[in-house]
Design a binder for these strands. Structure first.
Length: 306
DNA sequence: GCGTCCAGGTCTACC
DNA sequence: GGTAGACCTGGACGC
C-alpha cells in the first residue's frame, strides 16, 4: 500500500559574493547563539552556515554559506527556478543576516582608543548575526527569556517544525506572523512549549498580521535610540534585557541587555566573581558611549574565539 | 518514578 | 521609583 509520492525536482545554483576586507565570516556566524537556532544550522567542521530562506513570492530556498578568501560562497537549492531576481533576493537576505554592509569603521576607531579593546579591530569582531526579519529576531528573543538555552532551542525548533513551511530534508521555514496568529494560545502552550510567553507571542503576531504594528521598519528607523528602545519595550514580553539585545540586532549598541550569564561573566572579569548591582555595570560601560553594548558583548564572549 | 526545589526575565499590583 | 509575587519549563536532587 501507499502511493508513490514524487520528490520535487530540485534546482541548484551557486553564488559568489565579494566581501569587505574587515569582514570575518566565522566570527559573525558565531557572534552569538542565533546560528544554532533553526532555520539556521551550523556545521562547525566544515565552517558552513545553512539557512532556509523564504523569498517574497513564497519560494523556499535552502542556502549553504561559507567563505573562501575574500568571497562569500553560497550554494542555493530550491524546488522552483532560481531566476536572476530570486538570486538577487537571496544575496540581499544573506548579506543582511551577516551584516556584511554594516560599516564598523567608527566602532573599530573607538576601540583603538582603549588599551583593553585594541584586540578588537584586527579580529574584525563586531558584526552580530541576525535573522532575515525583525519578527523572527523578536520572537526568538522572547523565547530566550527566563529559561535555559535548551528550552529556547526546543521552542524555536517547534515553531519551525510545526508552524513553518516544510522543505525537503531539513528544518521548516520560520513561521510568518499570520501563521502564528492563526493558532490559539493553548496550541502555542501545548505544542510550542512556550509556556507563559504564549500570549505574548500571539499578541505580537496578531498585531503584525492585522497591520496594527509595523516592526520591519525598525532596522531603518530614524528615531533616536532611546525612543526606539521605548517602542521595542512596548511589545509585551520584551523587557530591559530583550529590548537591549534586539537593539543590537538593529545596529544600535547603547543598551547593555544584561542577563544572568552576562552578569556572571562581568563579575568574573572585573570583580573576581563578586556580585555587583546592574547600576555598577552600567557605570563601568558608560564612558564607551553609543558602542557600550557591543564592547560589553565582545568582552564577555572573547574566549569563544580564542 | 515521583516530588521538591531552583534558575531564568517580565508583568502586574501594590506601596 | 522600587519591590514582591506569579508566570512556566526543564534540570538537578533526594527519596
Amino acid at each position: 500500500m501507499g502511493g508513490y509520492i514524487p520528490k520535487p525536482f530540485m534546482i541548484r545554483t551557486c553564488l559568489s559574493v565579494p566581501l569587505p576586507s574587515d569582514f570575518r565570516f566565522w566570527r559573525t556566524v558565531y557572534s552569538h547563539g542565533w546560528c544554532s537556532l533553526p532555520p539556521f544550522q551550523v556545521d562547525r567542521e566544515n565552517r558552513t552556515l545553512s539557512r532556509l530562506l523564504e523569498l517574497e513570492d513564497g519560494t523556499l530556498v535552502r542556502c549553504s554559506v561559507s567563505s573562501s578568501g575574500s568571497r562569500l560562497q553560497v550554494e542555493a537549492t530550491s524546488a522552483g527556478n532560481i531566476t536572476a531576481a530570486r538570486r538577487g533576493e537571496i544575496k540581499t537576505q544573506l548579506l543582511d543576516c551577516l551584516r556584511v554592509n554594516e560599516d564598523l569603521s567608527g566602532f573599530h576607531a573607538e576601540a583603538r582608543k582603549y588599551r583593553e579593546y585594541r584586540w578588537i579591530p584586527p579580529t574584525g569582531a563586531g558584526r552580530m548575526l541576525r535573522s532575515p526579519t525583525v519578527f523572527e529576531d523578536v520572537v526568538k528573543m522572547i523565547c530566550t527569556t527566563n529559561c535555559s538555552w535548551s528550552l529556547t532551542e526546543a521552542m524555536v525548533k517547534n515553531l519551525t517544525g510545526i508552524l513553518g513551511r516544510p522543505f525537503t530534508g531539513g528544518t521548516g521555514s520560520f513561521p510568518l506572523p499570520a501563521a502564528l496568529a492563526g493558532v490559539t494560545e493553548s496550541f502555542i502552550r501545548k505544542n510550542i512549549r512556550a509556556g507563559y510567553r504564549s500570549p505574548f507571542l500571539l499578541e505580537l503576531s496578531e498585531r503584525i498580521a492585522g497591520g496594527k504594528l509595523e516592526i520591519e521598519s525598525w532596522r531603518k528607523s530614524p528615531l533616536p535610540t532611546g525612543e526606539l528602545f521605548r517602542q521595542v519595550r512596548s511589545v509585551k514580553g520584551i523587557g530591559e534585557y530583550a529590548a537591549g539585545n534586539i537593539l543590537k540586532l538593529l545596529g544600535r549598541y547603547d543598551f547593555l541587555g544584561l542577563d544572568s550569564w552576562v552578569r556572571g561573566k562581568y563579575y568574573e572579569l572585573h570583580k573576581k566573581g563578586r556580585r555587583v548591582s546592574d547600576k555598577t555595570i552600567e557605570k563601568h560601560y558608560a564612558p564607551y558611549g553609543r558602542w557600550r553594548g557591543l564592547f560589553l558583548w565582545l568582552e564577555v564572549t572573547r574566549a569563544w574565539h580564542e
